[in-house]
Amino acid sequence: MLKVEKAVVAYGRATALREVSLVVNTGEIVTLIGANGAGKSTLLNAISGVVPLKGGDIWLDANRLSGLPSHRTVRLGVGYVPEGRQIFGTMTVMDNLTMGSYAHVARNWLRPLGYAGWALRSDTVKSNLEMVFDLFPVLKERRGQQAGSLSGGEQQMLAIGRALMSSPKILLLDEPSLGLAPNLVRDILRLIARLRAEGLTILLIEQDAAAALKIADRGYVMERGRIVLEGSSQELFRNDEVRQAYLGKTRA
């Protein structure tokens, strides 16, 4: 269970998060809804340790995440797919996935010095790789290709696949469908539902709030660095303010 308690984040004098509290129960899909600049991405950045907290606390199960940099939170089970994918463009698909398992490999400090192929033979890493190739057969086909030469959708799959290589307990997804064709957006959302079915916990930011609420169990609405509303997906769907502000003219 991910628990954020009164998290405060400030960039210089500008406060981006004002005492945000939320809970993501194990096995849930929770979505964050809000306009650009509402603090959704900042919240994910704070959870993964990319930006430091000014106040408050963040816990994942029994581990305290607040105060840890991102390379430490990965080891505790936070898998983060940031906006813009951030894959290693001039490395191959396989190398990107290998880097995804770095948190596992580096548990033993001598292992990174070995041949990368050996690292992939360890049980955990091997089964993660099989799972990623099973979810995204196209990555298996293109494993020797430069990641930067993949299409936008394939790069998104690679970014998610790379995060899965670290065996995360919770996956933080920031606009995974940004810039993708509508049919790919559906594929990605279907995939997120499938990941949950396999036991992952997911915290999702998605521009298309209606689509996100369809696969999510619960949602939080953010405005100017605060959480202003929370509820089950059905409740938020039915809420008039939410429908007007974020769901456009979509049918209930």
Binding site: V74, Y80, Y102, M165, S166
Partner: peptide, 9 residues
Amino acid sequence: AAAGLVGID
């Protein structure tokens, strides 16, 4: 930044 996200210090 991405290197940090996969656990590289």
